[in-house]
């Protein structure tokens, strides 16, 4: 990501006179803002009928997600889920990959074979999630074991999950095997209080999901997912502990999903009471407010960053929109990489 001049100046300024609460605070804020602007664009494309399939937003979870990606380095493994645009960007996913995948460009990483948030670039350490929640946890474990077998050092893996995904068998098996294999895993579980439409009292009955850390042999911590400084602090510390060889880390964050499950969903089931809870605050708004109050940036500076991001987003979207869609007649329809072993009964042709 090209860092704006304004931001660089602001960071320099901040480090001198007005100290940001975390060294990555402004960088993280910019990614959060980029995520929000980009996702609003995606939502509007969806409403205009220009995106086929679903659109899934991370609205309200940008602070947690950006903190998941921003501490990762080359050689690390990131297995994001559906509300992790900010984390994906922080770990280096180019915006054009997102635009191409959502808009179905044949030039995108998934080439029209898969869409929306089911994208990734395993070679760059970003795994492509499958929809079955918890399935990626053990895949990260395998990546980390292989790195260790190959003699690599200093790497970690980070995966995200929600309070709904925490209830699957795959999550349980994956969390347990990570501890058994002593791999450097950070698992960030965001309790956004609704799994699609289902509230917490029908997902789990324990007092706090972080209590599970002990049961799995993890080190657990909790954080207010609407507070960027805290997210950076707590998730950053968990990443550091994993890198130092501590047991797997479970970080449980609390937020409210400020959108539907996907853009097809009006989230009318979210109660007024829950919207008044502290965890229902908008993390991005809080961050902006903090930045202005503490004069890390002024309004003009914010405005300039917003304009820069809007231009970047528009460029990614218009590039992807001009690209060709995949064509069935040019698709090779071969699901195995060993082409000689493709099963092609002539009756299917």
């Amino acid at each position: 990501m090209a860092k704006s001049e304004m931001l660089q100046t602001a960071e320099r300024g901040a480090s001198i006179s007005k100290k940001a609460p975390h060294e990555k605070y402004l960088e993280a804020f910019r990614i959060m803002l980029q995520t929000r602007i980009f996702e609003e664009k995606l939502a509007s494309l969806y409403r205009g009928g220009l995106i086929t399939g679903g659109v899934y937003l991370g609205k309200g979870q940008e602070a947690v997600s950006v903190a998941c990606g921003i501490f990762l380095q080359k050689g690390d493994v990131f297995a994001p889920l559906i509300r992790d645009q900010a984390g994906r960007s922080a770990f280096g996913e180019p915006l054009i990959d997102v635009a191409r995948t959502y808009l179905g460009s044949r030039s995108g990483p998934m080439r029209g074979r898969d869409g929306n948030i089911h994208r990734g670039c395993p070679k760059a350490g970003q795994l492509a999630m499958i929809s079955h929640l918890g399935a990626m946890v053990s895949v990260v474990v395998g990546k980390l074991m292989a790195k260790r077998m190959k003699g690599e050092k200093g790497f970690i893996g980070l995966t995200t999950i929600g309070e709904g995904g925490m209830q699957t068998g795959a999550t349980h098996e994956g969390m347990n095997i990570a501890a058994v294999e002593h791999v450097p895993l950070v698992m960030v579980a965001t309790n956004n209080h609704y799994a699609y439409s289902t509230p917490n009292d029908r997902q789990f009955a324990c007092a706090d999901l972080v209590d599970r850390a002990k049961g799995y042999g993890y080190e657990g911590s909790s954080v207010d997912g609407t507070d960027l400084a805290q997210c950076l602090e707590v998730i950053g510390a968990a990443v550091k502990r994993a890198r130092a060889g501590r047991p797997p880390q479970l970080v449980v964050t609390s937020t409210l999903r400020l959108a539907g499950h996907g853009e097809h969903d009006d989230a009318s089931y979210v109660t007024e009471d829950i919207r008044r809870e502290p965890f229902a605050k908008d993390a991005l708004q809080r961050t902006e407010q903090f930045i202005l109050e503490h004069e890390l940036l002024d309004r003009a500076g914010l405005q300039q960053i917003r304009a820069e991001i809007t231009a970047e987003v528009d460029e990614a979207v218009s590039t992807a929109q001009q690209e060709d869609a995949p064509v069935g007649s040019e698709e090779d329809w071969c699901a195995v990489s060993t082409r000689a072993l493709a099963d092609r009964p002539s009756l299917a042709e």
Binding site: P122, L127, A135, M136, V137, S138, V139, V140, V141, G142, K143, L144, M145, A146, K147, M149, K150, G169, A170, E173, G174, N176, I177, V180, E181
Partner: peptide, 27 residues
Amino acid sequence: GRVLNTPISEDAMVGTAIGAAMEGMRP
């Protein structure tokens, strides 16, 4: 170190193998 017992976790056994295979191993 190359023949490893696993917990009774068939899902995670295969998930782990998938991750390792994508990282260049032949589990």
